[in-house]
């Protein structure tokens, strides 16, 4: 009887978001996915909006008028933030996926240390670089904006 009825227990997208007592790299993983989806959404909107020029000049100017509002200025900056984080963290992930900065297999001795400890300096550097890029972008977006 038991074999006939199982209760599904997959945590789905909550598995990305519901961190709980998790490590830092999991939050970076979640942020990487969310920023990736955000950039994809922006890309689709970008194609749709720029394609409006095909229909008429007026349609183009109407859309440009909508996007010149301060709300979309902030939105544009958020896209830049997502891009900066996704790009820098992506480089970190590529390096890790090519086997750099994860160390070699070693005898596990308690308290265990894993490849996460080995790659942490790379992670910290990549976060700092992303933060610098975001700060510089913010200065360009808001302080130098006309």
């Amino acid at each position: 009887m038991l074999q006939d009825k199982r209760c599904p227990n997959s945590i789905g997208v909550w598995g990305w978001l519901g961190g709980g007592r998790w490590g830092l790299e999991r939050y970076l993983y979640t942020l990487h996915r969310l920023t990736g989806l955000g950039i994809l959404l922006y890309f689709i909107l970008h194609i749709l909006v720029t394609s409006s020029r095909v229909f008429s000049e007026k349609a183009w100017e109407t859309w440009m008028g909508v996007f010149s509002s301060p709300v979309f200025k902030i939105g544009e900056f958020l896209v830049y933030v997502a891009f900066a984080y996704h790009a820098i963290n992506g480089i970190r992930l590529i390096l890790i996926e090519l086997g750099f900065s994860v160390g070699k297999a070693e005898e596990p001795i308690y308290p265990y240390k894993s490849s996460l400890n080995v790659q942490r300096p790379l992670m910290i550097v990549s976060i700092i670089v992303a933060a610098v890029l975001i700060a510089a972008g913010g200065y360009d977006f808001f302080a130098l904006a006309h």
Binding site: R26, Y29, T30, H32, Y112
Partner: peptide, 11 residues
């Protein structure tokens, strides 16, 4: 795998 690293944390 995108290196969330939780597998190693909980092992």
């Amino acid at each position: 795998c995108h290196y969330a690293g939780e597998c190693s944390n909980v092992c």
